[in-house]
Amino acid sequence: MPSSVAPPGWPAGVRAPDVERWEQTAEAWLLDQCPPEYRGYPALRKHVVVLARFALLHVEAMQAACRRGLSETRGALRGVAPHDVVDAAIEVWLSEDARLSRVRREVGLVEEALRGTRFRARL
């Protein structure tokens, strides 16, 4: 039975916890989830668990913006875009909300692992 297990929902680009260099792959992946400016902050580069917290809050903020966009689309675009365009915009918001939900889970799992949680294989 392997000692390093990645749980369901673990990001594909990050090695399982405790595998050699897993934290480096986590850092690179987390930076990809953040605004590019975050790469310039030494505190985030030196402390990957801090980076994980920043990434989590960033993704949650994007989720909130997405949900706001979804709730306001029909009213905000009424009279300025045809119904089929508004419907297409709503589909984009729904797709983005689903993507962000997945990313939120992935970032949360990486943060848990960086804080010391280890996952076990389930039968």
Rank of each mutant, 00 (worst) to 15 (best):
P2R: 09
P2I: 04
S3P: 10
S3C: 07
V5N: 07
P11G: 04
P11W: 01
A12W: 02
G13F: 02
R15V: 01
A16V: 05
A16R: 04
A16Y: 04
P17E: 07
P17I: 05
D18L: 11
D18W: 15
V19H: 04
E20S: 12
R21I: 05
R21Y: 13
Q24I: 10
T25D: 01
A26Y: 00
A28Y: 02
L30T: 00
L30M: 05
L30H: 01
L31V: 00
L31N: 01
Q33I: 01
C34T: 01
C34R: 00
P35R: 04
P36T: 03
E37R: 06
Y38H: 13
R39A: 04
R39V: 02
R39H: 07
G40P: 03
G40D: 09
G40I: 03
Y41M: 06
Y41T: 06
Y41E: 10
P42N: 04
A43C: 10
R45N: 03
R45H: 03
K46R: 12
H47L: 08
V48S: 01
V50I: 14
V50N: 10
A52V: 02
R53D: 11
A55V: 01
L56I: 01
V59N: 00
V59A: 00
M62W: 05
M62V: 08
A64Y: 09
A64N: 07
A65E: 10
R67V: 06
R67D: 12
R67C: 06
R68N: 11
G69T: 05
G69F: 05
L70F: 09
L70C: 02
E72K: 08
T73A: 15
T73M: 10
T73P: 03
T73N: 11
R74V: 13
G79S: 07
V80T: 15
A81H: 07
H83S: 13
D84R: 15
D84M: 12
D84L: 13
V86L: 10
D87W: 09
A88K: 12
A88S: 13
A89S: 14
I90Y: 06
E91G: 12
E91R: 15
V92D: 11
V92P: 07
V92L: 15
W93H: 15
L94I: 13
L94C: 14
L94G: 10
S95R: 14
D97E: 14
D97C: 15
L100R: 08
S101D: 12
S101I: 08
V103H: 02
V103A: 03
E106Y: 08
E106A: 14
V107S: 03
G108V: 06
A113F: 08
L114R: 05
L114K: 06
L114W: 06
R118A: 12
R120G: 09
